[in-house]
Amino acid sequence: MTLCSTLALVLHLALATGGVIAPKPAPQAADDTSGAQAAWDQLDAIKGEGADGELTGEGLSAWVDTEKVPTLMAIVVFGLLMFVYQRKAKAGQEISIRRIAGLDAMDEAIGRATEMGRPVLYVPGIDEIKEIQTIYSMMILRHVARKTAEFGTDLIVPVKDSIVLTFAEEAVKAGCMDAGRPDAFVKDNVRYLSNEQFAYCAGVAGIMAREKPAANIMLGMFFAESLILAESGFMTGAIQVAGTAKQHQLPFFVAACDYTIIGEEYFAVTAYLTREPNLLATIRTGDFTKWIGITLLIMGVVLATKAVGAEGITWADVFLRLAGK
């Protein structure tokens, strides 16, 4: 992945310095009918933009934000790839997924809590339900609730947002139903603590200190409170599994937790746990998209290398551009 990102930077450099994408030429005189200018004019007409880039109120720009068209195209391509892989999965093609230690550890953590007769604490992050990581955390919570219900272990879910509270209650209830143990749902164990970040953090730390859960599972969107929660949990001796796609908080979790689910692994949890072909197909789509990206990046490396020496570009220029200078 690091290589992948380095290559992304190089591609950016190649496009910028190698002249791979030729800049749009300055508007020529009205009588200029050269092929390049005519093509640009035609494209402008389709987009509904004038020579200076101003909107004309016609064409595509009348109702589409043309600056977002590349994003739309990327989503469409991704969606089509997903469709293809789903068809393959439905046709019986086996889609394997690599072992993710952090996800395997969740069962281990719940099992340990069961053996010790202590509860499991599930922290779904501190963001609102509109955040995709929080929505996803609710899906994982359902699986965790199913496991705890099967094992007959208490599950405590403190939440920061009142909408998340209703989702969390539903997720835990559904998980208990999945396990065939609707009686395992304890309404008082899904707790709204506070809408304020550090008040919530203090509340969770208090639960860790007083109720001493044997397993802390922290999955979702975290900010500055991540290390306070993880260290508080560490001090109680609980086995800790944390995961987030928020890259700035990952080092804290890596330092303080037993297992960390990093970035994209976080979004693979339901596919990994259920092994449902439809969901596995979306993971494969992401992998394939990465291969497309890597191919483009290698092309970028080649082009950037070729750019050195051309038009007075030196390796020093290349590195300065990489460093954002």
């Binding site: 992945m1 690091t2 290589l3 992948c4 990102s5 380095t6 992304a8 930077l9 989503i75 991704f78 969606g79 997903m82 789903q86 995709i132 929505i135 996803y136 609710m138 899906m139 359902r142 699986h143 989702f167 997720a171 796609a245 890259q247 990952l250 990093i262 970035g263 994209e264 976080y266 979004f267 693979a268 339901t270 259920t274 439809n278 969901l279 979306t282 993971i283 789509t285 992401g286 998209t289 990465k290 990206g293």
Partner: peptide, 29 residues
């Protein structure tokens, strides 16, 4: 480079999850 790798992977994960939910493939919520 490490951070960008995580961002690229997470963005693809967000896109896949969003599409799964919007298209009704992911129903565990």
């Amino acid at each position: 480079a490490g951070q960008k790798a995580i961002i690229i992977g997470a963005t693809l994960g967000v896109l896949a999850t969003g599409l799964r939910i919007v298209l009704g493939i992911e129903r565990s919520y």
